[in-house]
Each structure stands twice: as C-alpha cells, then as structure tokens.
C-alpha cells in the first residue's frame, strides 16, 4: 500500500508538469496528429492494400500502435533527465520503497497514453475512420494498445536507468525508434515489401498489436496469408508479456546497480 501511495505522489508530479508547461504535451499531440494527416492525406492516396479496403481504416490502428511505441522515447527521456539532474539520487536518499520511482513513471505515462489515444480516436473519426467491430472488441483493442505501451514503458525505464547519464545514447535510441516504427505493418502492408523485409516486419511486436486491433475494430488487416494474419491476437498478448518478463527484472537490477 505504501508503495502505491508513493508511486501516486511521484506520478502526480508529472501531471503537475502539464499544468506548468501545457505546451509540451500539446506539441507532442500536434506531432502525432501531423503524422496522421501526412499519411492519411498526402501518402494515403497512393498506398494500396492487399485484399482491398480504405487506407484510412488501415492506417489509424497502425498510428495508435506506433504512438504506443514512440512512448518509449518519452519514458526514457524522463528517466534520463531525472538521473542527470540528480532527482533520481534524491528519490533514492528518501525512505521510500524501491519500486515507487518506477511505479510513478508507469502511472504518469499510462495517463499520458490514455490522453494520446483519446485524441487520435477523435482525430481519426473526424477524417473518416470507422469502427465496424463490436464495442467489447473495441475495448479489448484499447487494452491491447495499453498493454503494448506498458511493455514499452519498462523498456524505456530500463534504457533510461542504464543509458541516462550517457550523452548521446538517448539520442541514438530516439533515432532507432523510427526504423522500428516503420519496419512493421503499422503504415504499409508487409505483402508489398521485399519478401524478407516483409517477413521481418511481421515479427515486430508493433505489427502484432496493429494487426490484432485492426481485426477487433473491423478494419482491413492488409494481410491475406501468414502466421500473423491468423494469430494476431495471440501475438499481441504474448509479445508485450515477453518484453515485460525481460525488462521488469532488468530494470529492477539496473536500479539496484545504481548503488555500485
């Protein structure tokens, strides 16, 4: 119980940041919307889907999943900034339980993710995206997105703790998030990529979530054959679970190792 209370106090700090500097989250959201419009309006006309369907209906679930992936950057940057500014050390000198700092991060970033999803839902519906699946399937899709975000959160915590004080390392990760986002089924169908690249794309955890929620929203999946086309839901549950099993203990170890 204490650890929850402490986590909430630390999470509250981020929500207070929004009030002090509202333009930061607003700029982030504006960027996401811009990306959505770039693909939907500028590129969308020339992108085809195998098996047919409207590109906007294919794109939007992909955008939702990509936004969850890009959250990794935000988490890592926040952890790195605290490490650099000595705030992490101050937390460590306080009589609080060790997981509280990470839990605070989880609370703050999951709240942010919910806001981002809400804005993208609104934006998507405004430019012609339609959900044709059932309401309960849509709720499950949102849960799968948050599940992916949670996994990315812990990857970000780990990277922030281990690379946080190394100048340049965080920038390298930020640069790598982009190819990771595009080497997936988020924006284009893997069936229109060179064979091996398309295959690699289907292995991306991002592709698992994107494909699964397309199915749940009743949107075109852009995939006619392949393992992922048939087992997307299983992959979307398993991939983040695997990442969590790996990165939660790694993060705990990295936090303890600050004492070395």
């Amino acid at each position: 119980m204490t650890v929850l209370r402490e986590g909430l106090i630390i999470a509250e700090r981020d929500l207070r940041h929004w009030r002090r500097q509202p333009w930061t989250p607003v700029m982030n959201l504006a960027f996401t919307i811009m990306l959505l419009l770039m693909f939907a309006v500028i590129l969308g006309g020339s992108i085809q889907l195998p098996g047919g369907g409207e590109y906007i209906s294919y794109l939007l679930p992909g955008m939702l999943a990509v936004t969850m992936l890009f959250g990794l950057e935000a988490t890592m940057t926040a952890m790195a900034t605290d490490a650099k500014k000595g705030v992490t050390d101050r937390f460590r000198s306080l009589p609080i339980s060790s997981p509280a700092v990470a839990l605070g991060r989880v609370g703050a970033d999951m709240t942010t993710a919910l806001v981002e999803l809400a804005v993208l839902f609104g934006g998507g519906l405004a430019i012609g995206w339609r959900i044709t699946g059932s309401a309960s399937a849509a709720v499950l899709a949102v849960l799968l997105l948050l599940w992916l975000r949670l996994a990315m959160l812990w990857v970000g915590i780990f990277l922030g703790l281990t690379l946080g004080r190394t100048e340049g390392a965080t920038m390298a990760v930020q640069a790598l998030v982009w190819p990771a986002g595009f080497l997936s089924t988020a924006f284009v169908s893997p069936e229109f990529m060179p064979g091996w690249l398309g295959w690699i794309s289907t292995l991306n955890p991002l592709s698992a979530t994107a494909t699964a929620i397309r199915g749940l929203f009743g949107n075109p999946t852009g995939m006619t054959t392949g393992w992922l086309a048939e087992h997307a839901l299983l992959a979307a549950v398993t991939w983040p679970a695997v990442l969590l099993v790996v990165f939660v203990p790694l993060s705990a170890r990295a936090y303890r190792r600050l004492r070395r």
Binding site: E6, I9, I10, E12, R13, R16, H17, R20, Q21, K85, G86, V87, D89, R90, F91, L94, I96, A100
Partner: peptide
C-alpha cells in the same frame, strides 16, 4: 547539483518531498 524539479514551483517541490 540542485536536485529539485525545475518545472514545478518551490512549494510544490517541498510538498512532494514531504509527502514522500
């Protein structure tokens, strides 16, 4: 180095640390 939250106010910082 001053390990306080730069975005928050002075009072907000102290309340957070006090509650922790």
């Amino acid at each position: 180095q001053p390990a306080v939250d730069e975005i928050l106010g002075a009072h907000e910082n102290l309340v957070m640390f006090g509650m922790l």
